[in-house]
């Protein structure tokens, strides 16, 4: 597909003698919401890391925004326009919401290397806009994120990822650590991204969530991509059997 914004072809990654990924293809179109599912150790995280520059692939090619890319670091990928929200959230606990939203890309009043003067009013104004457009409700922007609920923190992290003119957002298990209500809130934020046309790839273990939120599902098993399905044309049972490999054995397969 020529119109994919992010495309990977024949990705392989070895850790010692173990193949974490073998000849994996993946692509996502602009505005598409996709999910990557698979059992523990299937290679989801490794693929995400390869796509976002955290790991270098041992084989294969990656195209982003029409160009072949070789990301050397997450920062590299971020500069190109791929934002990742990691499971561990990547927020600085002791900083306030505004500082977190702009960490590493601060706005300046005066530029003087690391000793530039921050433009705090501009950052605060833009932070308010970012949170509003992402649908994140934070009563006090000046409170540090340490005391916030998991849902609020995840909201800040997603707003941060979505607000910076990024073209693809990657969410690594965005609700894994959240309660029911918080999960619902974060899912609402993700639906908001869809309405805004933001491209999103998520890793999730929660099939209900995956079927609720995304357009396409990619299934990994033992480091191989076993298939891509449109959510509208597949049943959860089929996805489960693809994940476990049970379509061939009927019943449980132990690995």
């Amino acid at each position: 597909m020529a119109d994919a914004i992010l495309r990977a072809e024949g990705i392989s990654k070895w850790f010692g003698g173990v193949a974490a990924l073998q000849d994996v293809d993946f692509e996502i179109a602009p505005g598409e919401h996709a999910a990557l599912v698979g059992d523990n150790g299937a290679g989801k995280s490794t693929l995400v890391k390869v796509l976002t520059g955290a790991e270098r692939p041992d084989g294969g090619r990656i195209w982003f925004d029409g160009q072949e890319r070789h990301f050397h670091s997450p920062l590299d990928a971020r500069r190109a326009g791929i934002e990742t929200v990691y499971q561990t959230l990547a927020l600085a606990d002791h900083l306030d919401v505004v500082a977190n939203l702009f960490l590493g890309r601060e706005k300046y009043r005066v530029r003087l290397g690391p000793f530039s003067v921050l433009n705090r009013s501009a950052m605060r104004a833009e932070a308010r806009k970012m949170l509003e457009s992402t649908g994140v409700h934070i009563p006090d922007l000046r409170s540090s994120v340490m005391g916030m609920s998991g849902g609020q923190r995840q909201g800040v992290a997603i707003a941060r990822a979505a607000g910076m003119g990024s073209q693809v957002i990657v969410l690594d298990e965005p609700t894994a650590a959240l309660g029911v209500q918080e999960t619902a809130r974060v899912e609402e934020i993700i639906r908001g991204l869809k309405r805004r046309g933001v491209t999103m790839l998520m890793v999730s273990h929660n099939l209900r969530q995956v079927f609720d939120l995304v357009d396409t599902i990619w299934v990994l098993r033992h480091g191989q991509m076993v298939g891509r399905r449109d959510t509208s044309e597949v049943s959860p049972e089929e996805i489960v059997s693809m994940i476990t490999g049970a379509d061939r054995v009927t019943g449980l397969e132990f690995t």
Partner: peptide
Amino acid sequence: RTPFGNWIFA
């Protein structure tokens, strides 16, 4: 007041 300060905390 500076980004370096934010980075130190971070």
